[in-house]
Design a protein around this nucleic acid. Structure first.
Lengths: 229, 229
DNA sequence: GGGCGCTGTCACAAAACTGTAGCCCGACTG
DNA sequence: CAGTCGGGCTACAGTTTTGTGACAGCGCCC
């Protein structure tokens, strides 16, 4: 699945620009205008990466960092700081607080993208990794192929992304809404039950008879991908 | 060992693009933003090949050439010039000064790679790969021939480069845009669907009936060349 | 000038995929 | 145990994406 990026930026123009470019680059993007908002959204969506502006109204970027680190679910999410020139001296403090990298404004998109890729690769090999394996299921995102026990599994685009996302966070339960946001995109309106249908299709494609179903239904909560047998 | 390439280019976007593609192609890449930098790096690493932009701030590409030639360690390193259209008249001057070849912008990546291989082959035989094989398909880039199962396959220039690029990265899926960038050139404007047409033509030329189609369509993603049977 | 090979676009047909509704059934509630 | 609720499944009509034949333009060689 596309990595999910949370952009925390109060300046509207920059936020829009970032969102636009990140999405073009293939990331799923959520934007928060201030620290409060950021923490809320981070808790909901558990992004794969957070971009935080150093200067924010109310809660500062550093503080956002610290708090993200303090929470169970977001403790390991990589963070990249956006700092203006002249704030460089604070760099150490920023990295100390838990940012994984920082970019000095003004920066080019390609530069930013390079940092992002580098950080993702470093912190979450799974995201920059081309191949994810779980049990007898292998998913190759570069080749765009899925196989189970040496047989090729054909999936439609949506099923592919769905499986990708689930495998990316094994064991974790996602509500239908969360899956819609992550897999379909945060701004499309689709019926929640549609997720069921796709999960069904995914299951049918994935499971030969007498094979264990790796997708677990959690009643009145959602679905999860379970690794083990 | 991977050949080491030194890219001397002040324009950030192009430098990044070159680095990215060269590395993907299997070269080790160093980038220098200006002539001074280039000379320093060249001395340190003694690259196998240098790509120099004609237009550079401070020290011009030609000057870099001359100086590289003037030094003991780098006197025999092959050099390829990147020139913009209109600077062609300077060609002779460029070659005189010691460049081994030149490429006119805009160029496609496959074109550039072909030049690089040609120069490396000439100057340092053994560093360039000339023939790619995959299953019963053989592509000879020097002779510019493709054969499948002992029969000669005739391809137009574009189909040839397309197949070349795909075979170069077997299994990997490329979007139509990526293919346009790599095969057509990074700044030509061509309809994305044109790729489909050429893939179609390539398929028709490549596949006798009852032969497996090595080109896989990945719906809503692009195309890939699959090695295996 | 007239073929000829190659290209890029279009338009249309075919194929693949999608979202929704509806029905059924087992699980849970009281 | 009857009544709900949530989820699995199927059918289907609507969309999106891809395959392809036709065509006009271009550069080249004879």
């Amino acid at each position: 699945m596309k990595p999910q990026v949370l952009v925390v930026e109060d300046e509207d123009a920059l936020a829009t620009l970032l969102q636009y470019n990140l999405e073009k680059e293939g990331y799923t993007v959520a934007v928060a205008a201030d620290g409060e908002d950021a923490l809320m959204q981070a808790e909901e969506t558990t992004p794969d990466l957070v971009l935080v502006d150093w200067m924010l109204p109310k809660v500062s970027g550093i503080e956002v960092c610290r708090r993200l680190r303090g929470r169970q679910e977001t403790a390991n999410v990589p963070i990249i700081m956006l700092t203006a020139r002249g704030e460089e001296t604070d760099r150490v403090r920023g990295l100390d607080t838990g940012a994984d990298d920082y970019v000095v404004k003004p920066f080019s998109m390609t530069e930013l993208f390079a940092r992002i890729r580098a950080v993702l690769r470093r912190i979450r090999p799974g995201l920059a990794e081309d191949v994810i394996e779980a049990g007898d299921i292998t998913m190759d995102r570069v080749a765009h192929r899925v196989r189970r026990a040496d047989r090729e599994i054909h999936l439609g685009p949506t099923e592919f992304r769905l499986l990708d996302y689930l495998m990316q966070h094994p064991g974790r339960v996602f509500s239908r809404e969360q899956l819609l946001d992550a897999v379909w995109g945060s701004d499309v309106y689709v019926e929640a039950r549609t997720v069921d249908v796709h999960v069904g299709r995914l299951r049918k494609a994935l499971n030969n008879k007498d094979e264990r179903d790796p997708i677990r239904t959690v009643r009145s909560a959602g679905y999860a991908f379970d690794v083990n047998a």
